[in-house]
Write a protein that binds this DNA or RNA. Sequence first.
DNA 1: GTAACTGCAAAATATTTGCATCCTT
DNA 2: AAGGATGCAAATATTTTGCAGTTAC
Lengths: 138, 138
Amino acid sequence: MDNLIDDMLKSNNLSITGSRKKILEIFFSSNGALAHGDIEKRTSEKFDRVTVYRTLQTFLEKGIIHTIPTADNAIRYALCKDSCGEGHHHDNHVHFICSGCNITICLEDVLIPSVRLPFGFVAEEQQMVVKGVCKDCK
Amino acid sequence: MDNLIDDMLKSNNLSITGSRKKILEIFFSSNGALAHGDIEKRTSEKFDRVTVYRTLQTFLEKGIIHTIPTADNAIRYALCKDSCGEGHHHDNHVHFICSGCNITICLEDVLIPSVRLPFGFVAEEQQMVVKGVCKDCK
DNA sequence: GTAACTGCAAAATATTTGCATCCTT
DNA sequence: AAGGATGCAAATATTTTGCAGTTAC
């Protein structure tokens, strides 16, 4: 596990530091997407709030994580699959937010259907968020 | 026009005040969704920042406007169609964000396609945002 | 050794709350 | 007249920036 994380950092040309490892661990051990605040809460020995901001920013730029927009002004972050890389995301799956446990999950297997846009509009990227009840909360 | 706005407020049991009228006017005269900051910018004689917060909150609760989630932590608001009311939104259309002019538009005629969720998941509400280039920016 | 990362302090920004005053009904 | 809406002040919360000390390579 430790190796996996080290490799991830290495292959993205990031130096291996305590905070980066710890934050990646948190992502791997959580089964949903995390908001900035969630990450702070889940660290016992904690880093500076600023370090979390900067680390998330770095991971975003490298394509290690992606953002999930929500209507409640609390952006969540989730790990990208292998196919994402610096600059290009293949973040074409649906995200699910459970109104019961409030977890945010990547439904990797549910692809976003394409839509027919009005004449003249060109789509470059699309995101879809479904709210509802997850299988554990029924 | 003034009547339309007054009626809207009345039918939602809201008293007719200067700020509410002004903010609704701004929504009607803009052809896209607005973030909190946009609204402040567009008022010459201006209200308190707090009033804008409270007014948007009120409109949201009454189902007069709805939010559009974006990945950049800047929530936009747009007018709902008639079919929305207090408590229940019929906000089932696609939103489009143009990377050229950075405008956010409700594509009222483009409905969000439904997706097949994994077993056990129940959808209650879905949102879809498409980024790309609008017809004016090509 | 050097470049990059972190923590701390502080600035800048955004949001919420309480309360006195004013406006709508 | 009464209840609700607004403006102001201030408390909170969030995010960004600069810089000095530390760490990874």
